[in-house]
Structure formats: structure tokens, C-alpha cells
């Protein structure tokens, strides 16, 4: 029997971690006697931002983390960030295979699966957001919390005054009024208790989560063929089932939030299209700029965009 050690980027209570642990259970059940995943913990076991290096170096065999936590090594993860598709379509069209290949070449890790996809990000604000005459979002009065993932969009397009904070500090920053707006995924606001301070959700949503399972390549290649097959099959199943599960969860969260008084402000027409285009294009720009500086260059750039972005899937 093969045994893999694993850690996850976020604390155990977060919905995304729960989803990963479900995957682990499925593998351990299906792989009994062949493959076992031994979860060692979350950020308390290996620091959030050190996990990608840890799996590369073989300290741990498997990590569940957003690609954004290793953006410095693999700027191509922005293809997932800017994607308007889910793991279901991109598994089908070969997108994930390409991402896997890039992971193997650039980081020496196997990209096993893109979980919890199909969840996008909203801007959430304390006060009613202001729109200009063109219906565009006016962020001039907002104290917007940012981080490395959002900022290309927030500062360059929206022109916002961004305050960089890690997730763990946002609650107290909202509480004290250090920030009064933040981006976050459609799900999870309630778990983080940020809904105590945030009253408006701005639609449309942008970006996509980029959570994936990566496995040390030497470890992967040392596994029995049977173990590899089970891992890959269960991962592909979980890619699909997690999309469904999280959509249900999103609808529940939205309903619960609306019941508590969360109001939805929707950008319309051209303003919405510009907003989405900017989120996407600023992210692609960043990806292209960083790819240029790395070995291999922008060779995969066009193909990545083609596979992870389908204009037909945008809200019309």
C-alpha cells in the first residue's frame, strides 16, 4: 500500500478544506489496501505560503492550495483566475491537462485536479456603492481591502485606494473601519463572519477560485499504477461533484445573507461588460508579463486563454 502525506492551505473549518477532506475520504475508501492519504493538518502544520515549496521539495507529498499562493513560480495560474469556465469543461477540452503539463515542467509537481471551481468573486461593501452617470462603479470613497490576486484589477482598472491585508486580519479591519469593502468568493462570507459588517454585494461576479491539488512528481511517479489510476479517477469525479456541491452551497449562502438584509447592486449593460473585461484583461496582462520573464516565455499564452475563457459563456 502507498501512503501520501497531505496538508491544506486553509483552516479546517473553511468550506474549501471540507471539500478537500471529502476527496481524501473518497480516495481512502476506494483505495483501501492500495493508496492512503494521511492529512497532517492545515496552515498550522506548514505555513500557508510555504506549502507549495514544501510539496516541491518533498517535505509533504500532497498540498491543496490556491494556485495564487505560488504565482511567483507559475504565473499561468492566472488562466484559472480569469476563467469563466469550470473544471468540468476544462477537463474535457484539455485545459487541465495543459496546466498539469506546465506544473510538471515548471515546478516538478503533478496537478491532480482543479476542485471547487465555478465559484466566482464579488465585491462586498459596507455602504451602498455609488455608480457614476455611465452606471460604472465609483470606488473613490471606498477603503478597499486588496491582496496580490485582486490588485491588478482593483488598482489599475477601478483606481481604488487599496489596503493590503491577509484574510485573517480582515474581520478586525472591518470591525474598526480600517476597510469598508473587500472582494471575496461567493461562498464563505458567513464562515468568516464578515457579513456582520458588509451589507451590499456587487454583481456581476468576476474571477474564479483556483484551488487545486498538487502532488510531488517523484512521489507521483513512484506510486503503483493502480494507485495513480484511483487518485486520478477520484480527483476527476471530485472536480465535477464539487462544482455541483458548491453551487448548492452558494445558493444557500445567498439566501441566508439576503434574509439578513444583504442587498444586491447589479452593474448593467456596458458597465458590467467593461467591469468583467477589465478583471479578465488586467489579469491576463499580468500573466503575460510574468511569463515573458520565465524560461519557456509566452509560448502557451494564447492556448491557455483559448482553453480557459469562452466568450459565449459570459452573461449576455
Amino acid at each position: 500500500q502507498d501512503t501520501l502525506t497531505a496538508v491544506h492551505a486553509f483552516p479546517e473549518s473553511l468550506i474549501y478544506t471540507q471539500s478537500f477532506l471529502e476527496f481524501v475520504d473518497k480516495v481512502n475508501e476506494r483505495g483501501e489496501g492500495v493508496i492512503e492519504i494521511n492529512v497532517r493538518g492545515g496552515p498550522e502544520a506548514i505555513g500557508m505560503f510555504q506549502q507549495p515549496d514544501a510539496v516541491r521539495n518533498g517535505v509533504v507529498d500532497m498540498v491543496y492550495t490556491p494556485g495564487s499562493f505560488y504565482a511567483g513560480s507559475l504565473p499561468e495560474k492566472d488562466a484559472l483566475v480569469a476563467s469563466n469556465l469550470t473544471a468540468i469543461e476544462t477537463r474535457e477540452n484539455g485545459g487541465i491537462e495543459l496546466i498539469d503539463q506546465i506544473h510538471q515542467e515548471k515546478m516538478g509537481v503533478k496537478y491532480l485536479g482543479w476542485f471547487d471551481s465555478g465559484v466566482c468573486y464579488n465585491l462586498w461593501t459596507r455602504n451602498e456603492p455609488e455608480l457614476d452617470e455611465g452606471g460604472n462603479l465609483d470606488v473613490s470613497g471606498l477603503k478597499l481591502r486588496g491582496n496580490a490576486v485582486y490588485n491588478a484589477f482593483f488598482t489599475e482598472y477601478l483606481g481604488a485606494q487599496v489596503i493590503d491585508l491577509p484574510t485573517t486580519d480582515v474581520y478586525s479591519a472591518l470591525e474598526r473601519g480600517v476597510v469598508d469593502a473587500t472582494g471575496w468568493t461567493q461562498i464563505g462570507l458567513i464562515d468568516l463572519k464578515w457579513n456582520e459588517f458588509l451589507n451590499y454585494r456587487i454583481e456581476p461576479c468576476f474571477f474564479s477560485t483556483d484551488l487545486g491539488v498538487i502532488v510531488n512528481l517523484d512521489t507521483w511517479e513512484g506510486l503503483s499504477e493502480e494507485a495513480q489510476t484511483i487518485l486520478q479517477e477520484v480527483a476527476i469525479e471530485h472536480e465535477q461533484s464539487s462544482v455541483e456541491a458548491l453551487r448548492t452551497k452558494r445558493d444557500e449562502d445567498f439566501a441566508a445573507l439576503e434574509e439578513q438584509g444583504m442587498e444586491v447592486v447589479t452593474l448593467e449593460g456596458e458597465a458590467a461588460a467593461d467591469y468583467l473585461a477589465a478583471a479578465r484583461e488586467k489579469t491576463w496582462e499580468r500573466m503575460q508579463g510574468l511569463m515573458e520573464e520565465q524560461p519557456g516565455g509566452t509560448e502557451n499564452y494564447d492556448r491557455l486563454i483559448e482553453l480557459f475563457y469562452d466568450p459565449a459563456a459570459d452573461p449576455q
Binding site: 505555513g47 505560503f49 521539495n57 518533498g58 517535505v59
Partner: peptide
């Protein structure tokens, strides 16, 4: 943490901290 790789992890952690 798996021998030498664990020591690299130690430095990376220190960097993060």
C-alpha cells in the same frame, strides 16, 4: 520533514515568519 528538504523548509518558514 524528510531530511535535507526539512532544513530548507526551516529557512523558508523563518523567511515567512
Amino acid at each position: 520533514m524528510g531530511g535535507g528538504a526539512g532544513l530548507t523548509q526551516l529557512l523558508n518558514n523563518g523567511f515567512g515568519a
